[in-house]
Amino acid sequence: MSLYVRMVVVLTVIGLISGSFLATVGMLTEERIALNKQRAIEEAITHVIPDTESSEILYEEKGLAIYGGRNEEGVLIGFGILASGIGFQDKISFMLGTNTSLTTIKRLKIIEQKETPGLGAKIEDEDVFLKFWENKDCSEPLTLRKPAVKTSEELGPTEINTITGATISSESVLKIVNSSLERVRQLIKEGHVQSEQQDVN
């Protein structure tokens, strides 16, 4: 066999074997990986809308997904808004829990972030950042409190505390929250997302 033919044959055979090997591994792990993602989302919904028993996806578009959380009786008790946007260094994505009329934020959970460790990465920190989001009035766009204060009592009704040394990361989360809330309101108005409270009324 000439060298050229041998080179082609050897590379092709290695490629084919590797390819079929990978296809097998891919098939074997696919289901579990999808399940892991699903579970992570469900956990986030249960965290941001307390008392959720079951949840379902209501709407999805690029950078935004809306989940509905239902309690034991099957009544819709809140929306889980999975949104993402650009932070200081990379994408930030989070799950935001609101009530069905989009007037109160129940809780916020950061799903993914690659902010500076020790500074911007504190957006994941419950005591430094996330606790200030709990039960926050969001009928008006939220604003940032700068410089930072120590307790939630010192904040105005629509104010969110800044992380000292990480203004841009705090601001990024705030902007994504405001714009996604705006977008969800628009979607509900246009009838893409049904909030059952309106049906009852």
């Binding site: 090997f21 990978l22 891919g26 792990t29 990986i33 892991n36």
Partner: peptide
């Protein structure tokens, strides 16, 4: 690269 992909998938799963 094949083994790396396998490692990546196993970690993800």
């Amino acid at each position: 690269a094949s083994f790396v992909t396998v490692a990546d998938r196993i970690l993800a799963a």
